[in-house]
Amino acid sequence: MSVRHALLALLSEGPKYGLQLRQEFEARTGDVWPLNVGQVYTTLQRLERDGLVEADDTTEEGPQKGFHITEDGAAELAQWLRTPPDFSSPPRDELVIKVLVALGLPGVDIHDVVQVHRRYLVELMQQWTRLKEDESRFDLNFALVVDAELFRLDSLLRWLDTAEGRLKRAAAGVDAPLPQAGPLPKARRKVGNRS
């Protein structure tokens, strides 16, 4: 979560003061990521030091002190929005590590280990889905946050399901990789060659 860039985004809409930034940040993120006001002011000071925001001259010091974005700040925000996060290297996912470690341990039933994590993930998904049921709370920002969390948890569950399928095949002696795309049959290859 880049608080720094989230604050720049809020200031790109117009000048704001610290408390207001905190309230709007929380509202925009569906009240899922609470922010303490100290974090807001520390971040604003750094942004000011880097020339990305400026304090308004006209406003007073303290909680009512206003800030506005600079040209450099707007350019930094535009650049950040279009820069994909770094997904190039696999994270050291604790769940993956636990399953890999469990594989080699005597006396550990890997299916039990997988099931413990599966149940926990489904329980978390149930909690997030429950939040969808209350439509009075369910604005667009909140819906997007909940969806993101559900898809993240779901991807972990799918990995667990796939892992368990692979382990079962391996235990049954069918431990070769899934069928691979071999060379195409002759007739089709000919078609391919022509194109």
Binding site: H111, R119, L121, V122, E123, M125, Q126, Q127, L150, D154
Partner: peptide, 26 residues
């Protein structure tokens, strides 16, 4: 799982047996 997560309770079947179920949500 996204579908199942709408349920009050999720039970898990493996090889024809119920092996686990979720606890009630907070």
């Amino acid at each position: 799982a996204q579908l199942a997560s709408w349920a009050d309770r999720v039970v898990f079947l493996r090889d024809g047996r119920i092996v686990d179920q979720t606890m009630p949500a907070q």
